[in-house]
């Protein structure tokens, strides 16, 4: 398989990755032991593999790793600082918004991008923001509540 060298920033650290031309960004993350970003559908239809690339939430399963060249990538592993949970993580834990937890990194990363742009959202806006994130456990009640709670916590 032909390979491509890419340089990017991952969770604040500059890295040089050797990836295959046909490797998705998600596969590259997993190959580099960043497995918090989940493979759930592999077709861009559940947002379970959500990460932030240059501040925008995207699905890592439907993008080539090579396309991330020069990018600034933030994954679920990069949110907590020195062991302290990010307010969104804290809110998800407090509200019981993670049940099986498999969709949770995708929800948290999507919420992270959303709250940066909409620091004071209402419930309707939060629902719309999470419309692409599939969860099979919670019925979305607690994840939506957690994002609203996180918005409050981020202003405290």
């Amino acid at each position: 398989m032909p390979e491509v060298d890419i340089a990017l920033t991952v969770n604040g650290r500059a890295v040089k990755w050797h990836v295959e031309a046909g490797e998705t960004l998600l596969e590259a993350l997993h190959a580099h032991h960043l497995k918090g970003t989940k493979l759930i559908c592999g077709t861009g239809d559940c947002c379970g593999c959500g990460v932030l690339l240059n501040g925008n939430s995207i699905n890592a399963c439907c993008m080539l790793a090579a396309q991330a060249e020069g990018g600034d990538l933030l994954t679920i592993e990069g949110l907590a600082q020195e062991g302290k949970l990010h307010p969104i993580q804290e809110a998800f834990a407090q509200e019981g918004a993670a049940q099986c937890g498999y969709c949770t990194p995708g929800f948290i990363m999507r919420a992270c991008a959303f709250l940066q742009e909409h620091p004071h959202p209402n419930e309707t806006e939060v629902r719309a923001a999470l419309a692409g994130n599939i969860c099979r456990c919670t019925g979305y009640v607690k994840p939506v509540a957690a994002v609203l709670r996180a918005a409050e916590m981020m202003h405290e």
Binding site: G44, C47, S57, N59, C62, R110, G132
Partner: peptide, 9 residues
């Protein structure tokens, strides 16, 4: 079109 993440890409 698709989800917010898809619309970002």
């Amino acid at each position: 079109c698709g989800s917010p993440n898809i619309r970002n890409m």
